[in-house]
Design a binder for these strands. Structure first.
Length: 609
RNA sequence: GCGUUGAUGGUCUAGUGGCUAUGACUUGGGCCUUCCAAGCCCAAAACCCGGGUUCGAAUCCCGGUCGGCGCACCA
């Protein structure tokens, strides 16, 4: 069993992830998040909101998951989000039709399926596997189609990314931010891609969750006002150069930007922010790197693009976040298709005096003479140079025919005007997170199997049989010798920022005198908004293991001493150490342990170490 | 989408053309005055779906679905 299998077995058994529609045999590429899974996922998303919405100030919006066709024509998904496929008649193997044709001609990628079919026929291209003939090529679009409204309705698509919502709402957003760059907006939600062959569990889904942020910046100023916050932070960068060398490099953000490894400060800042976020939700920094897209891999309009990648046991390095400078590509595309200019007016620090040549056709005179054509004549006049306009008889060509305009019908002059700003199409910096992959990453990186006896010795637990210890060691080692060595425990070392259960409250025995005070404690924790679970089933040791498996960071145990002196024990998941602390104020103590980074040892008197 | 391989309680697994289908762990109820899996009593729980062969199919055959792997795909 490899780690993926172990993680998935646990995820299934403990209510993190289930195959969707299992009752009916299931369907590929869809997963349900069970009770603990959806809690963990939601908490990851909540941390993301803390980063992007609260700290960075990029407000969240929510757009429909169904989009109308125009949106995806503009985004390029209708035309480009598909692959031409072609199957062998003999062996059934499917190939990318454009790849087959690449060897015999240039620019194969621009051909339609029909053209590709023709080329394949003409050139007699056969199956590389078996030499068989090919069927006609066809486009496989990765978007789910649907119809909006009854009857033939209107063509709609399930969105393949959340980003378009922020672009389409650009004007509204700009107004909301009082037309001042930079500003950003985020969206967390479902996206859909009709993958040909979803695989690898939750790594490639047909319905998945994205958290995307679009930051609109002035193209002329990609410095970040808060750059110093992360400038000294060291990142593992697998740059283009590093990839050629085959070895990632460690570099501070400042150094990377100064050396031009990362294109500019805004990008550098956002890569560092991603690093911060991923670490916070429990991605192991030793299994995290930032890989720069290679030149041929990057979209043609992008200036620079970096993927956060995590190392997984079965799949190797997996992309979980993409951070790109997409320039003005998206806004310009939507401007073109919607025929609406999308820009922000940026005022200069100082108004500029600009000298320019202006042409003012006199419409009062042009109108009566040229009637309906007056407008095009005027427009043509505006294109002329000073020399051309200086003639007594000005000649312009309109609709292929030459017309003559007398000089009194147009005025022109070189004039100096005050310009206080200009229209700018912002560039977009886009951090795009695949939440499901991050979810799996936190599970795999949190997953650990450890030898209990060894761990107990390390933590100095009483009776753990550690060498050099006196009396008790002998006593405890006696009964379980040898076999106890084999005992392993499964621990999910979730960061307490995301653990789906934060505190377990356990009466030592299932007896009313213990369970009543335990239930009171659960109530107090819940009032403090902590996710607390009550569990009285099975022996205490079994319950500790159960909570280790679901990654509960702290367990509170009520015993008979509680009834005497009003104290309980708090157990730390990772070290298995326990301290004794008063019931009074226990909710505040746990809150500090979980959210304020209070050290466990300071929480009470050592109990078992 | 092609090929290959698999599918038995919640999980992992044994198994054979034949009566009420293993086992372990888990789970639930109870016992237990004391802190790290396997204590005691009791209980619940499974042959992926459809068709065929057969007196009889969980077992053999075909198809489907789902999972693993390889190829292809992954804006």
């Amino acid at each position: 069993m490899d780690k993926y299998e172990k993680v998935f077995e646990l995820a299934k058994r403990r209510g993190f992830l289930w195959n969707s529609f299992e009752l009916y045999g299931g369907s590929r590429g869809f997963y349900d998040y069970g009770p603990l899974g959806s809690t963990l996922k939601r908490r990851i998303e909540q941390v993301w909101r803390e980063f992007y919405v609260i700290q960075e100030g990029h407000m969240e919006i929510e757009c429909p998951t169904i989009g109308i066709e125009d949106v995806f024509i503009a985004s390029g998904h209708v035309g480009g989000f598909s692959d031409p496929l072609c199957e062998c008649k003999k062996c059934g193997e499917a190939f990318r039709a454009d790849h087959l044709v690449e060897n015999v001609m240039n620019a194969a990628g621009t051909l339609s399926a029909e053209q590709l079919t023709q080329v394949i026929k003409e050139k007699g291209i056969t199956c590389p596997e078996c030499g068989g003939e090919f069927n006609d090529a066809y486009e496989f679009n990765l978007m789910f189609k649907t119809t909006i409204g009854p009857g033939t309705g209107r063509q709609g698509y399930l969105r393949p990314e959340t980003a378009q919502g922020m672009f389409v709402d650009f004007q509204r957003l700009s107004r909301f931010y009082r037309d001042k760059l930079p500003f950003g907006a985020v969206q967390i939600g479902k996206s859909y891609r009709n993958e040909i062959a979803p695989r690898q569990g939750v790594i490639r889904l047909r319905e998945f969750t994205q958290a995307e942020c679009e930051i609109f910046v002035d193209p002329r100023n990609k410095k970040h006002p808060n750059f110093e916050r992360f400038a000294g932070r060291e990142l593992v960068l697998y740059s283009q150069a590093a990839q050629e060398a085959g070895e990632p490099v460690r570099m501070t953000v400042r150094e990377a930007v100064e050396k031009g490894v990362i294109a500019h400060e805004v990008l550098g800042y956002n890569i560092a922010l991603t690093n911060e976020f991923l670490t916070k939700v429990g991605i192991d920094p030793a299994r995290l790197r930032f890989r720069q897209h290679l030149k041929d891999e990057m979209a043609h309009y992008a200036i620079d693009c970096w993927d956060a990648e995590i190392e997984t046991d079965r799949f190797g390095w997996v992309e979980i976040v993409g951070i790109a400078d997409r320039t003005d590509y998206d806004l310009s595309a939507h401007a073109r298709v919607s025929k609406t200019e999308l820009y922000v007016y940026v005022e200069y620090d100082e108004p500029k005096m600009v000298t320019r040549f202006t042409v003012k056709p006199n419409m009062g005179k042009l109108g009566p003479i040229f009637k309906g054509k007056a407008k095009v004549v005027a427009d043509a006049l505006k294109q002329l140079s000073e020399a051309e306009l200086s003639q007594a008889e000005i000649k312009v060509t309109v609709d292929g025919e030459e017309v003559t305009v007398s000089s009194d019908m147009v005025e022109f002059a070189e004039e100096t005007v005050k310009v206080s700003g200009e229209n700018v199409v912002p560039h977009v910096i886009e951090p795009s997170y695949g939440i499901d992959r991050i979810f799996y990453g936190t599970m795999e990186h949190a997953f650990e199997e450890e030898n209990v006896a060894q761990k107990a010795a390390e933590s100095g637990l009483k009776g753990s049989g550690e060498e050099g210890e006196e009396g008790p060691a002998v006593e405890a080692g006696g009964e379980a010798e040898g076999e106890a060595e084999e005992e392993t425990r499964l621990v999910m070392r979730f960061s307490s920022a995301v653990a789906p259960v934060q505190v377990a409250v356990l009466p030592l025995l299932t007896r009313k005198e213990l369970s009543d005070p335990a239930k009171d404690i659960v109530g107090k924790l819940r009032e403090k908004n902590l996710l607390a679970a009550y569990d009285d089933s099975g022996t205490i040791g079994r319950r500790y293991r159960r909570n280790d498996e679901i990654g509960t960071p702290y367990s509170v145990t009520v015993d008979y001493d509680t009834l005497e002196d009003k104290t309980v024990t708090i157990r730390d998941r990772d070290s298995m150490r326990q301290v004794r602390a008063p019931v009074e104020g226990i909710e505040n103590l746990l809150y500090e342990l979980i959210y304020r980074g209070r050290s466990f040892e300071s929480a009470g008197k050592p109990f078992n170490f």
